[in-house]
Nucleic acid binder design. Structure first.
Lengths: 140, 140
DNA sequence: TGGAGGGTGATAATCATTGTCAAACTGGAG
DNA sequence: CTCCAGTTTGACAATGATTATCACCCTCCA
């Protein structure tokens, strides 16, 4: 178990990390698009793999949309468990902390006899900028 | 907008609703499997469509797993917003309520200028039964 | 510089889900 | 009960995201 495969820094990975700095949650294919527009020559499969590796090593955050797409973003706090408030329109996101959430969920889980509990929390809304742009648009 | 298409009760839909009473979150394909084993003759596409219709009408709850699969379950409280504590092993789930979550998330969203905010919360662990079965199994 | 092994990328494959469309079925009218 | 209209069904193709393949390329260490 002491054999750790250390990552190599290739042009592609560097380009991905660079693109990631643009901020916002985007799908692998979106990032791929972004990279190509940026002039980078990189394959879609490579983007998927790299993004996954980064996610595993904690360098990027991932969320799964309701449609099943996985979105990736540069993680700002690799070590701290946190949640996101994401704009459903532009993908912008801010890290948030929900006080006591951990303890509350742990307690609830314990009450029901559940162990090894993990939780997923996502807040999805419309950011200030997009709210301005779309005006008083009512979605439903 | 006053034209509402009212659903017809077909053998297939009845079978699905019946199977749904078995409880637990399962994927459309799982339910389809279950139905076939149950002796029902029903197509996969029909299961998907019916489940979606039920979901839209609020009769079933849906959650999306990390792998992008959509899971369905008979909804017990169609009108009340609630969350789930689900067993990652057997799919069993209990409805839970997280006190003050709504107000907390709304406040946080407002602080960041987000509007029209919705939230997703899922607790995933191992239920008491599965914990017993698998013993003191450590996953990591 | 040379070698070893991970990394890359075009493409096929996989998997869940949706679209298609003719035939079967449900529910109400006559 | 019979007929009709419109829904629903189901087999299968199509879609779309993601993963596996696999031979060639490149990074990193000695």
């Amino acid at each position: 178990m002491t054999e750790v495969t250390r990552p190599r820094m290739t042009r592609q990975r560097q380009a991905i990390l660079d693109a990631l700095d643009g901020g916002g949650f985007r799908s692998a294919q979106d990032w791929h698009d972004h990279l190509r527009h940026d002039g980078a020559s990189i394959g879609l499969a490579t983007v998927y793999r790299s993004l996954q590796h980064f996610a595993e090593s904690g360098d990027v955050d991932t969320v799964v949309t309701a449609s099943g797409e996985t979105l990736y973003r540069r993680c700002e706090q690799p070590e701290v468990h946190h949640h996101h408030l994401r704009c459903r329109n532009c993908g912008a996101a801010v890290d948030i902390d929900i006080p006591d959430l951990e303890s509350v969920t742990n307690r609830i889980a314990a009450q029901h006899g559940y162990t090894d509990v993990d939780h997923t929390v996502e807040l999805i809304g419309v950011c200030a900028d997009c709210t301005k742009v779309s005006g008083a648009k009512a979605s439903g």
